[in-house]
Design a protein around this nucleic acid. Structure first.
Lengths: 103, 103
DNA sequence: ACCTCATATTGAAAATTTTCTATATTATAT
DNA sequence: ATATAATATAGAAAATTTTCAATATGAGGT
């Protein structure tokens, strides 16, 4: 993959806010339009819109416009990419114990 | 697992900052003490210490104290837990298309 | 006991993020 | 064309996060 540090932060910013995590829980039940999400969240409409932008920017959520509505859903591809990213970042490539600081 | 929204944000906060992502890249080479990390990052010592606290709080990094030094490394268990968390959060449990907003 | 080294904590400034109100945009209906 | 409905954008206030300087803590060494 080879994402920049910056790109990685954009992905995981999706999960750094309690409201956005809650939105994931709502989207687990399938595609939802913004108005439905707004009903269930204690947020103003512009604030929800702001969070949806961050979620879409992360790639973990996709928006589908249809007439007046925008339908949001979890992206399986985005989720896979995020998991791959975290796997790669946490994979230790160390072959053997290099020691430091007087060990 | 069943983590609260808040607990989930604590995990992924680790990956929401470019400096912290860079610290992961350094730790991929194996355990490092704070002074080594400090050498390689453009940060003051207190700022590094602050980031290491956030990383340890996330569970993705563990600190091991040894004499004057603290040695940090990536936690395989923490990584696994984070991956499980993101998998669960992005798993769509929808059985069939429920429609809304005039579809 | 004192000094030094490694790291952590405190407290405040700077930067970023979250939130809201007001307004704009875009689509559909009348 | 006008009105209404759904969502997005702009701009500013509030909250949080990042950062650093100063200081504290704690572990060895002399």
């Amino acid at each position: 993959m080879d994402l920049s540090n910056k790109q990685i932060t954009v992905i995981f910013k999706a999960l750094c806010d309690e409201n956005r995590v809650q939105i994931f829980r709502l989207l687990q039940g399938g595609e939802r339009c913004a108005c439905e999400l707004l009903d269930e969240m204690q947020l103003s409409q512009p604030t929800l819109s702001h969070h949806m932008k961050i979620l879409c920017d992360s790639g973990l959520v996709v928006g589908r416009k249809e007439g007046k509505w925008t339908h949001y859903s979890i992206s399986a591809d985005g989720a896979e990419a995020a998991i791959k990213c975290i796997s790669e970042l946490t994979a230790v490539t160390e072959t053997e114990g290099k020691r430091c600081c007087g060990e």
